[in-house]
């Protein structure tokens, strides 16, 4: 009797799960620019707006991100789903101030004010946290990010560090491999990086669809990176 169930399980795994896993792996390989060398085509949107997920790191990362947002058309890139790391009240406050000003500028205050949401995300690795305990907190971040991405289904994720954006981009990639949502990921390396990438940048270079640097020397070293001068 036991051998019968065992055989059934083997057959199921062999015939159903394994091919699916293989398809998923091949698709993941295909979608990862660093592995397949394929350039991800731009996502063509049916609507006139783009749901954009914005990851706010902290301190300098947030400053740079808010500067990048200045270059984005707030009515077109809307709604904005902000991902803030837990306990980073300063970034949250600054974002609310920024959105408030934007709402006033655009006149239609009430409408614009409703076009953003701020979500909390556990930190992937605290400053000084051991690399041994990091995998656990990365998983927590990934779990939380998976829920948020599933709920809001952004068309585009813009991030610029720190490590918290790695699980977010990985989840987006997995969702795309599973045909769940076609999210594109965009990583902008900090303006502070003139000749070397940050650790987050080095991890994300093969994973994100569009990788952006702000100094020419970096583009020479990382040919897939986009460079259009200083953006912030």
């Amino acid at each position: 009797m036991t051998s019968y169930w065992l055989l059934t399980a083997v057959v199921y795994v062999g015939c159903l799960v394994a091919p699916l896993a293989l398809v998923l792996l091949i698709r993941l390989w295909y979608l990862t620019p660093g592995l397949s060398g394929r350039k991800t085509p731009a996502l063509v949107l049916r609507e006139n707006t783009c749901r954009v997920g914005v990851l706010l790191g902290s301190g300098g990362h947030t400053s740079e991100m808010l500067a990048l947002l200045e270059s984005m058309d707030a009515t077109r890139y809307s709604p904005r789903i902000y991902l803030v790391t837990q306990g980073d009240t300063l970034s949250e406050e600054r974002t609310r101030v920024w959105e408030g000003q934007r709402g006033q500028q655009d006149g239609d205050h009430a409408r614009i004010m409703l076009r953003f949401v701020i979500c909390q995300l556990p930190r992937a690795r605290n400053v000084g946290q051991s690399f041994l305990t990091a995998p656990w907190s990365v998983l927590q971040t990934a779990y939380s990010a998976a829920g948020i991405l599933w709920h809001y289904r952004p068309d585009l994720i813009v991030c610029n560090g720190p490590g918290t954006c790695v699980p977010v981009c990985v989840i987006a990639l997995i969702y795309r491999a599973l045909w769940l949502c076609p999210t594109r990921t965009l990583y902008v390396e900090s303006f502070a990086r003139t000749s070397t990438l940050s650790l987050t940048g080095r991890i994300l270079y093969p994973l994100v669809d569009n990788f952006v640097v702000q100094w020419p020397e970096l583009q020479k070293r990382y040919p897939r990176a986009l460079y259009r001068g200083v953006l912030v």
């Binding site: 609507e47 990048l68 984005m72 077109r76 890139y77 569009n210 001068g229 953006l231």
Partner: peptide, 19 residues
């Protein structure tokens, strides 16, 4: 000064609007 066109051209590599 900051030039918004630069980041806009990068965004166009990621998403494009049909209409």
């Amino acid at each position: 000064r900051q030039e918004p066109e630069r980041f806009e051209s990068i965004l166009a590599c990621a998403v494009q609007f049909d209409k």
